[in-house]
Simulated assay, not measured.
Amino acid sequence: MTVETNTASRQLITFQLGDQYLGVDIMAIREIRAWSPATPLPNVPEYVRGVVNLRGVVLPVLDLRYRLGWGMTEPSARHVIIVVRIGDQLQGIIVDAVNDIVSVSADDMQPLPDMGDTAAAQFLDGLATIDERLILILALERLVERVTLADAA
């Protein structure tokens, strides 16, 4: 008797924006840090809250809630910045709380239902159900427009 195992699983870090649970591939995560105020920049998209200094690296900080079309985040001490690699650049994304590391098999992944042309849908890779909870899988590479910090200054 042979048992087939599905080795195509992804490890995700799950986090919250309000009551919504999202996940991002663990391999994209560089660190998770406490909220620190970002220095605003002129001429950047509205979802870019500014920059923070991460050990000498200037890191753009994105308001994920705003980028998904769910309203503006009012950051407080309870918020967290998840530092992710998007393409060849590190970016910070503001989230309410980081939850767990989970493994999602290919069988647990589902495509997005047709939701029309909503802002959030274009930034999502799919859905997964983990412990009776629906997790939206974030497509990091679609979050940012190609704006360099030099363009902003």
Score class of each variant (00 low, 15 high):
Ile26Gln: 07
Met27Ile: 13
Met27Glu: 11
Ile29His: 05
Ile29Asp: 01
Arg30Ile: 04
Arg30Met: 10
Glu31Met: 06
Arg33Glu: 09
Ala34Tyr: 14
Ala34Cys: 12
Trp35Gln: 04
Trp35Cys: 01
Ser36Lys: 13
Ser36His: 12
Ser36Asp: 08
Pro37Leu: 04
Thr39Phe: 10
Thr39Leu: 11
Thr39Val: 12
Pro40Ser: 11
Leu41Tyr: 04
Asn43Met: 09
Asn43Thr: 11
Asn43Val: 12
Val44Phe: 08
Val44Asp: 00
Pro45Cys: 07
Glu46Asp: 13
Tyr47Trp: 07
Tyr47Gln: 08
Tyr47Cys: 02
Arg49Lys: 11
Gly50Ser: 00
Gly50Ile: 10
Gly50Tyr: 03
Val51Phe: 02
Val51Met: 04
Val51Tyr: 01
Val52Glu: 08
Val52Gly: 00
Val52Met: 08
Asn53Arg: 09
Asn53Trp: 07
Asn53Asp: 08
Leu54Val: 11
Leu54Ile: 13
Leu54Thr: 08
Arg55Gln: 10
Gly56Trp: 03
Gly56Ile: 06
Val58Ala: 13
Val61Gly: 00
Asp63Glu: 02
Leu64Cys: 00
Leu64Val: 06
Tyr66Thr: 04
Arg67Cys: 02
Arg67Asp: 03
Arg67Ala: 02
Leu68Val: 04
Gly71Asp: 01
Gly71Ile: 02
Met72Thr: 13
Met72Leu: 14
Glu74Tyr: 11
Glu74Thr: 15
Pro75Gln: 10
Pro75Leu: 07
Pro75Lys: 02
Pro75Gly: 06
Ser76His: 10
Ala77Ile: 13
Val80Asp: 05
Ile81Gln: 01
Ile82Phe: 03
Val83Tyr: 05
Val83Ala: 00
Arg85Gln: 14
Gly87Val: 01
Gly87Phe: 02
Gly87His: 07
Asp88Ala: 12
Asp88Cys: 08
Gln89Pro: 04
Leu90Ile: 06
Gln91Asn: 15
Gly92His: 06
Gly92Lys: 00
Gly92Pro: 10
Ile93Gly: 09
Ile93Trp: 06
Ile94Glu: 01
Val95Thr: 03
Ala97Lys: 15
Val98Arg: 05
Val98Gln: 02
Asp100Tyr: 09
Asp100Lys: 14
Ile101Val: 14
Val102Ile: 03
Ser103Thr: 12
Ser103Ile: 10
Ser103Ala: 14
Ser103Gln: 12
Val104Lys: 05
Ala106Trp: 11
Ala106Asn: 12
Ala106His: 14
Asp108Arg: 14
Asp108Thr: 10
Asp108Phe: 01
Gln110Glu: 02
Gln110Ile: 09
Pro111Gln: 12
Leu112Asn: 05
Leu112Glu: 03
Pro113Glu: 00
Pro113Tyr: 04
Asp114Phe: 11
Asp114Val: 10
Asp114Ala: 15
Met115Glu: 10
Asp117Arg: 14
Thr118Phe: 01
Ala119Lys: 15
Ala120Thr: 09
Ala121His: 03
Gln122Asn: 09
Gln122Cys: 06
Phe123Tyr: 15
Leu124Gly: 09
